[in-house]
Amino acid sequence: MPPTRPPDPPEPGDSGSSYSYFKHDADIGISAWGKTLEEAFIQTAEATFFLMGDLAEVLPRRRIDVRFKEEDLELALYQWINLLLTEAMIGEMILCRFSLIRRNDFWEGSGWGEAWREDLTRGIEVKGATMTDLSVRKSGRGRWETRLIVDV
């Protein structure tokens, strides 16, 4: 049975979840963590879109949906980020809030945001997630951690 999407954008800033950036010669590395696998994936998405703008300025006016089937967790992260980027590029949007539900190998997620406005702070364009240094693992402390490098 496919998972069910939440109807409204979730509030950001769940405690115990966050992200940081690490260096790559030409592009940017993201490491993120969360109490659950889905939360770690959501943090990775937030870190990705934060490179493109100031997410505090972005309003969750429109929703885009993504769904895919993937058993490999690393490839699931690759698909999650790339599908969000693709839909945001096609819709000429920046996304600020995310939800994701996993049931077995089925993943269903959403991103909320708005079309680019003249007064939004511009960062740099993230064109996609790569498979370089890609990892998804559960740490000894029981939290989920992700690493990926995005191409800018």
Binding site: L75, Q79, T86, M89, K127, G128, A129, M131
Partner: peptide
């Protein structure tokens, strides 16, 4: 632009699979 990147993204996944 995004066109080339999407091709790279799509085919990388297919090559791996």
């Amino acid at each position: 632009r995004g066109f080339g990147h999407q091709i790279g993204t799509d085919y990388l996944l297919r090559f791996v699979k």
